[in-house]
Amino acid sequence: MKKSITFLFLFACTFPYFLGAQVAPGIKMGYNESTISKTRLEPKSGLYIGGFLDIPITKLYTIQPEVFYSSQGGTSVSLDYGDVQIDYLSIMGANKFYVGPNKGFHFNLGLGLDVNLKNNLVNLSNGNGDGEISPFDVVVFGGIGYEFKFGLTLEARYKQGTVSVDFFGADDLYEEAGSNLNGVLQVGAAYKFKTK
């Protein structure tokens, strides 16, 4: 009971501040270079595109929920399967830490969920084109960026998966035993729309 009262009290104190915060929507897009560890696949180029909400908490800290499409996978050089293409819906929660109160240079850290929307690897055991690769991935990421006063941000981040991408039945894709994890270098731009 005491915990509930404390929570309601804190919520009541902070809610007016969030209403007054200058929440701004935005769009982002850029380049992916993705890899899948411990496989014979080479890095693959792709893109990401989506939107976000910029929610300032203090002058030095902003929360940024993001939703975007991310094209990932690996390039096959000598295998019969061809390139592995995995299309994810990425739901991210970025924490942006600014170096100074005038915004500009910042670091970002966060967690996210990648949902496997579609992939092109055929499951050798049943012949279906979908469902053979893990349906989701839990990711952690970190990066740097620079935000200009007119709304444009340039950023680079590295996204690391923590759930193994399992190629059920495709044993010759594996290079060594262990988890096959997504790793994605992302370089791109974002634009934050002014709300006032």
Rank of each mutant, 00 (worst) to 15 (best):
V84G: 06
S134R: 07
K192N: 04
G183R: 02
V139Q: 01
L152R: 08
G74K: 02
I86A: 10
I144P: 14
L79S: 14
E176D: 11
G131F: 03
L152V: 10
T6E: 15
Q72W: 00
D80I: 01
A190E: 09
K44F: 10
G30T: 06
F136V: 04
S125H: 14
Y191E: 04
N180D: 02
N119P: 11
Y158W: 02
V122H: 07
V23F: 11
Y31G: 06
V77C: 09
E33S: 15
V187H: 05
G50V: 01
T195G: 07
M1Y: 10
G183E: 01
F9Q: 13
Q160Y: 08
T62H: 09
L109Y: 12
I63W: 14
N116W: 07
D166F: 00
K96Q: 10
L109W: 14
L152A: 11
F105W: 15
S4G: 11
F105D: 14
Y98N: 04
L10Q: 11
Q22P: 12
D172E: 14
E42V: 08
V140H: 11
H106P: 11
G51K: 06
G104S: 05
G129M: 08
K3F: 12
E132T: 13
Q160D: 06
L113C: 10
I86M: 13
L47W: 15
